[in-house]
Design a protein around this nucleic acid. Structure first.
Length: 577
RNA sequence: UGGGCGGUCGCCAAGCGGUAAGGCCCCGGCCUUUGGAGCCGGUAUCGAAGGUUCGAAUCCUUCCCGCCCAGCCA
């Protein structure tokens, strides 16, 4: 058995928990199969952006190759020109790289069109493929049903010579789109419908993103996929469950052709609660503008997740901890969020930011005085050092941190009550100023205790809570975008009679706060930088930022036990402010 | 109803005849100048029923439930 190692990017393939596919590879190696080679591939169709479900497959394929000193190709299965384009090809490459993987070979099924055509000719010559003139509709009639066998196409017994001639003319463009197909002569009575004389080639006049108008016939995925894997010398052809039924067909082609025969292994695709992971639905949300685009931070696409502030490490750890198996399953999105928190807790610098401000005036603090208080950048990482935070008479604190009438268990600021201002002093609320017309609390007046400065020897006094703040005169104005699950329901498809999955979209999945105040040290933050806003969550700088006016995306909240208590605990997740 | 594949804790998931790992969530407690983090502790008899065996989640039988397949999509 090969020793674990790491791939070119230095992505450590640590002793990951094993799973059935890994066990198969280990066994194969033990038995000396494939001369000790492990060669996998990630085979996306460039008809959309990659999503987190693809990340699972990418980590699996590249991870196995890395662990066993093998190779992993990136191959675009571009056999349907009407749905594919280069924008998708480019985004897929960018996303795979971002996730931390480098492919050994970059291939395209379209690279093999000539070879595939020759394979088809060989099957015709062997008498096991024929040109069929049935229309799509007629073909369906002849196919039979799940319980009844199909019938032979009336064109099934054409001579080899005639089939060869017809197939060549299909290629030349003599026949209209959809008028003829090349079919494999397998078994119209097979209980496996995929074996009922499946189509190998169809006539389609569409410009291909790579081969242009060179071809007007295109191989079907079923005819191209197995042979492409074979041509690349793939040893372990890993795919999702729905292709299990197609395996006998791939075996049939490979055996008839007498070429290298990769071993196909199927695993269950990823499903996540509160989101959809189907290219069709994601495309629809983008096209119908239910989201801002493929990289909308609410999207489960890698582009969206990246913009949201997720790290490749968090994603890889997530893929590792969900495992690989054959049972259909839906992973709780909380698992994903946990992976991010775990990663960012260790590396994100902490900073104070007030999202929904309420002014605090320290009545006994000298007007015009400013203190530079020392704050720890990351308590989880001593090497992250400290920074200075300006403190003055007028501050902003979070609306959530003040209650005129505190409920039981509320430790934060309320009339007559004391709290500590993080890295500063203990303050006491002495007066509440309200808007005379609305009754809304617009200002809280407090006294501060100069003896309690953070870090000083007399600061031993304990108070129940510490809250974050920002100096009104020094803070930077910012916009913060809060995100929640794209779908309110755990299962988006769980809709009332008559409605469709779109009805389950969460109307509050995005909330823009435009009157936020953040610590001045954020002035130089760059797009993509990630921070923990103390007591709130992890945020990253969005590219929409303009100079010092930053825009932050909330990547994930911090765990909030108080919020849980307030809402009555138990396992009801939403209602995030 | 034909074929294929599945059914182990609320959610993922180990286990492959020797007496149920781990993670997430949840619930307690400790600790804490983030009600964060960390630490400690708690929660399953394996879809059902029979059978084989000294012994079964693991083997056999029957049954039940779920997913996939009738695109010239992938």
């Amino acid at each position: 058995m090969a020793e674990p190692n790491s791939n070119k990017d230095g992505v450590a393939a640590e002793s990951a928990p094993s799973h059935f596919i890994r066990n198969i590879v280990v066994d194969d190696l033990k038995q000396g199969k494939n001369h000790g080679r492990v060669h996998t591939r990630f085979p996306p169709e460039p008809n959309g952006y990659l999503h987190i479900g693809h990340a699972k497959s990418i980590c699996l394929n590249f991870g196995l190759a890395a662990e066993f000193g093998g190779k992993c190709n990136l191959r675009f299965d571009d056999t349907n020109p009407s749905k594919e384009n280069v924008e998708y090809v480019d985004s897929i490459k960018e996303d795979v790289r971002w996730l931390g993987f480098s492919w050994d070979g970059e291939y395209y099924a379209s690279d093999y069109f000539e070879q595939l055509y020759q394979f088809a000719v060989r099957l015709i010559e062997a008498g096991v493929a024929f040109v069929c003139d049935l229309s799509a509709d007629e073909m369906r009639q002849y196919r039979g049903t799940l319980t009844e066998p199909g019938r032979h196409s009336p064109f099934r017994d054409r001579s080899v010579a005639e089939n060869l001639d017809l197939f060549a003319r299909m290629r030349k463009g003599e026949f209209a789109d959809g008028s003829r197909t090349l079919r494999a002569k397998v078994d119209m009575a097979s209980p496996n419908i995929n074996l009922r004389d499946p189509v190998m080639y169809r006539v389609v006049r569409a410009t291909h993103h790579r081969t242009g108008d060179q071809w007007c016939i295109y191989p079907t995925y079923d005819f191209a996929h197995g042979q492409s894997d074979s041509l690349e010398g793939i040893t372990h052809s890993i795919c999702t469950l729905e292709f299990e039924d197609h395996r006998p067909l791939y075996d049939w082609y490979l055996d008839r052709l007498g070429v290298h025969h990769p071993q196909q292994i199927e695993f269950a695709r990823l499903n996540l609660t509160h989101t959809v992971l189907s290219k069709r639905k994601l495309l629809q949300m983008v096209q119908q503008k239910h989201v801002a685009g493929w990289d909308d931070p609410r999207m489960p696409t890698l582009a969206g997740i990246r913009r949201r502030g997720y790290t490749p490490e968090a994603l890889r750890n997530f893929c590792e901890r969900i495992g690989v198996a054959k049972g259909n399953s839906t992973v709780d999105i909380a698992m994903l969020e946990h992976s991010l928190r775990e990663d960012l807790n260790k590396r994100a610098p902490r900073v104070m930011a007030v999202l929904r401000p309420i002014k605090v005036v320290l009545v006994n603090y000298p007007a015009g005085q400013v203190e530079e208080l020392e704050a720890v950048n990351n308590p989880e990482d001593p090497t992250a050092g400290t920074r200075k935070v300006p403190f003055s008479r007028e501050l902003y604190i979070e609306q959530d941190d003040f209650r005129e009438e505190p409920p039981k268990g509320f430790f934060r600021l309320s009339p007559g009550n004391e709290v500590r201002l993080r890295y500063a002093y203990i303050i006491k609320c002495t007066e509440v100023v309200k808007d005379p017309t609305t009754g809304e609390v617009i200002e809280v007046r407090c006294t501060f205790d100069p003896e309690t400065k953070s870090g000083s020897s007399q600061s031993k006094r304990k108070v129940k809570a510490t809250i974050h703040w920002v100096s009104a005169a020094h803070a930077l104005a910012a916009e913060v975008r809060l995100y929640d699950h794209l779908f309110a329901a755990e299962d988006p498809d769980d809709v009332p009679e008559g409605a469709d999955w779109l009805a389950n979209m969460n109307p509050r999945s995005l909330e823009r706060l435009t009157t936020c105040h953040v610590e001045p040290c954020l002035a130089s933050a760059k797009a993509g930088d990630r921070y923990q806003f103390e007591r709130l969550g992890y945020f990253c700088v969005d590219a929409d930022s303009q100079g010092e006016r930053k825009v932050f995306n909330r990547s994930v909240t911090l765990r909030d036990t108080w919020a849980k208590v307030e809402r009555g605990a138990s396992n009801s997740p939403p209602a995030r402010r």
